[in-house]
Design a protein around this nucleic acid. Structure first.
Lengths: 214, 214, 214, 214
DNA sequence: TATGAATGAGGCTTCATTCAT
DNA sequence: AATGAATGAAGCCTCATTCAT
């Protein structure tokens, strides 16, 4: 606002700042309006640069969208790495992982919405991104190690499947965000207050832990 | 050409058939491409009538979309009524309900996708539809009765909340459809074969039943 | 100019007139500016309809260009059919053919320019048009029959090749138009007055006839 | 990277090399895509320098194009000087000139294509170039001397006009290149094999010599 | 009720060029 | 002499919708 021109200058010759600024704006708008619904003009306008710059750095709408998607996934990985599941007994580690997953999705609704949008488009863009596969496979691998640890320690029963478990955990955590609007519309806001969310988190943890434990 | 004309004439006598035809086509296309992604031209072309008729009967894109949504919800209600949960002991009834919910979503992916799309648009259109609220509230009421029965019979513990339970059941069943594309893309198709789906269904049932049972 | 609205109405519901109007305008502009140089906006503006109509009937710039090209070729065929070479002794028929070719190109500079443009683009669009091949092969066939007649009558020597002859005739007639601008620029306008053109026509006829005659 | 820097430095010491490099690249691209079709970005990218240098040395697209055109013409002049027609009897000299013209155009398709492009743009840029006129007038002068020699020697008849003859020779030689793409597309590649080209060259020589000789 | 023709507004993208260093 | 970043103007095309019959 203050001295728009000066701010412009600041961007100039600072490609990464410009790119990040565009990416953040685009993330919000794609998450809000979907791929087709998003307008390149809107994105550009909410950016601190020009429409031309969006194309300069991201080529076209589709590339921009893919980059947004990749950046969102990269952020999850970063967060997951900080969890340090290896430092806890398997049971506790799993509880932490479920809690983290629940919270992460809750705190990053844009990320969840992007995946949802991607699914509506048959995950066509995911297909072309190596980065994204990598992120996710590493998450499964971590869970596999965790399960193995739990089984060997006698904490977990021996039939747990990492992918299925991941699916089960993710399903509720994702749904919690993706269908919040329709749920709230139909049944009121009770489940989405802080209290309600705590109850749901405990519900998920309890139902999953009982399934996993020996 | 002649055959074509005859078919055309058939429509002319039968407005409801025309409307249904348009509605079915629109359902498929909205489910496939989302609201913004769907093209009125595509819908009209895949219809057995003309574009003008689509507007004649449904006014504009938004109205058409809302009608599609309402029609989808109406179909669920019809299906649920056939379940007759009252005829079984509470535990068995709940297992049947979860199984039904899983299967129903699986068999009606377009319905699920429409709700997803609706959520991406903040359930704005749902808000305007009375039909839809009604359908859902009756589902919760049925579940409440079931839980009460289970508690009274000593089968279920006494702290189960119908809405939370509905949320938990629905979450996995919906996610199973909505995020199938991205899951498959990232982790392969194993979970989505008939076998894989059976395993997931059992997983949900088991995790939920252990949470509910006394 | 007079009652623009009324004229608009006249177009309405008269697709062929609209299409022809667009095609003529587009022919002139593509001939003048080349494919890349031509502006869809210019074409639309010089049309008696709107830009939207151009796309409605011709899909995109490329399709419009191809249609223009095909229409131009179709016109040549129509003209050639009126020549009735069969009605003259071979020698005279050939002289008429050369003269016609010279005059036709001279009178249809847009046609020639279109072919030139097409050549600059490596005749890529010609490749996709069946219509155009057909037109041209029939021209060669006619020349072949003419040569055969001339040989059998002893008028022509027996080694004439239709395709080579066609090439030789066409080369000068085409060049006369395509390189007129640069020639005139460099050597003045003398060759392109009516007199000059008559001299050139005679020169071509004489040089070719001497080559063909026995 | 290191090697790249070294190469860059080499240019820095050698402006003419940079200019030539740009000019050659630009020649090829203008010849391939026409004026409007050529992209400054493409030219710059295929260059061994940067886009900025293109503008630094050649101001803008139009100037670059004109310079390309002039450079192409300059090269023809150099070639023609090596012909030394004066050393042969007029008839033989003319045959050599036709052959040379045919071959030269065939060996310099880019040059021919540039002129073609120039003609499509009404030779507007040629108009502004003194260099180019000079080149061409000297060609006519040489032919004039040749004809005069032939007439005086009784080899040629006395009505030959240098400009018309130049036009006749050039027409086929130019057309051979400019319309090769469309010809090949429509009638196959036979005329453009080495054999085919020899036959065409002989055809031109024969048809022209018969016209010129006494 | 039905239809092919028509359309304004707005979408995405690309161009030649210039700026700050 | 050299460069990567930046840009306004203009290009092509598509959308939901309406009109005349």
């Amino acid at each position: 606002m203050v001295a728009d021109n000066i701010r412009r200058r600041k961007w100039q010759q600072n490609p990464d700042a410009v790119k990040n600024n565009i990416l953040e704006t685009a993330t919000a708008i794609f998450a809000k309006d979907g791929f087709s619904g998003a307008r390149m003009d809107d994105i550009a306008r909410q950016t601190e640069t020009s429409k031309r710059m969006v194309y300069y750095y991201f080529t076209d709408k589709k590339q921009l969208y893919i980059t947004v998607l990749e950046a969102a996934y990269a952020k999850v990985r970063a967060a997951e790495n900080e969890l340090n599941l290896e430092g806890y007994p398997a049971g506790e580690a799993l509880i932490r992982l479920i809690g983290f997953t629940f919270d992460y999705h809750r705190n990053h609704p844009d990320f969840v919405r992007l995946i949802q949008i991607e699914n509506i488009h048959q995950a066509r863009h995911l297909a072309t991104s190596d980065i994204i596969s990598a992120v996710n496979l590493s998450a499964i691998a971590a869970l596999e190690r965790l399960i193995k640890r739990g089984s060997e320690a006698g904490e977990f029963h021996s039939n747990n499947d990492a992918l299925e478990l991941h699916w089960l955990i993710t399903s509720s955590c994702v749904f919690n965000i993706t269908n919040r609007a329709s749920f709230q519309q139909l049944y009121g806001a009770n489940l989405f207050t802080d209290d309600g969310q705590d109850r749901l988190k405990k519900l998920i943890i309890s139902s999953i832990m009982q399934t996993v434990l020996a």
